[in-house]
Design a protein around this nucleic acid. Sequence first.
DNA 1: ACATTAAGTGATT
DNA 2: AATCACTTAATGT
Length: 209
Amino acid sequence: MIVPVKWSHLFEPELLQEIQTYGIPKSLKYGETLISAGKTVRLIPLVIRGTLKVSRVDESGRELLLYYINANESCAMTFTCCMQIFPSQVTTVAEDDTDLIAIPVDQMDRWMAKYPTWKSFVMNTIRNRFNELLQTIDQIAFQKLDERLVSYLKEKANATGSSLINLSHEQIATEMASSREVISRMLKKLENDKKVLLYRKQIKILNEL
DNA sequence: ACATTAAGTGATT
DNA sequence: AATCACTTAATGT
């Protein structure tokens, strides 16, 4: 298994060695589920390549996007749940083809005490996620849906590095916990304002957005 | 050509 | 802003 060179700046050599020996390499294809809500988590994902999407899902299957986990990041939710073997409150799905190293809980428990770099890595990812979550709460509480949609589109374009977004109105609606018709209408309005171009399962973002 | 799925629309709450 | 019922348009077989 190959631990990315980048990580040598993050962790000390002995810890890198331990990651090598205890970590379980895993690859997910686009759309595959890593953890679904209600399941107990025993592994911590360290993402090497790709993106994981973390979202809340309620009983009836409605969804709300919480945040993404990118390369060289890990999952804050997992830390908090798995330390005491609590069931996951979120679902995480591969947003791209993704490679990761899964760390067994008992190892990571031990590392917390042994390696300062590990501890601060964990603390940092929790802090970062917490801040991101506050942002999305702000959005939901204080922004109107049309403003949220615009930020959503911008974020998507940013994440993919392309102004062409390959999503159906339906997919957008479920990620934003809204309904397809509402999203369609708002997109239509954006198109009339020359902010986007609409195609089937594709949205082109124009500079004016 | 036909069936299926995505998107558009008006009315109702 | 959500839901329903329906239409229209694009895409797959």
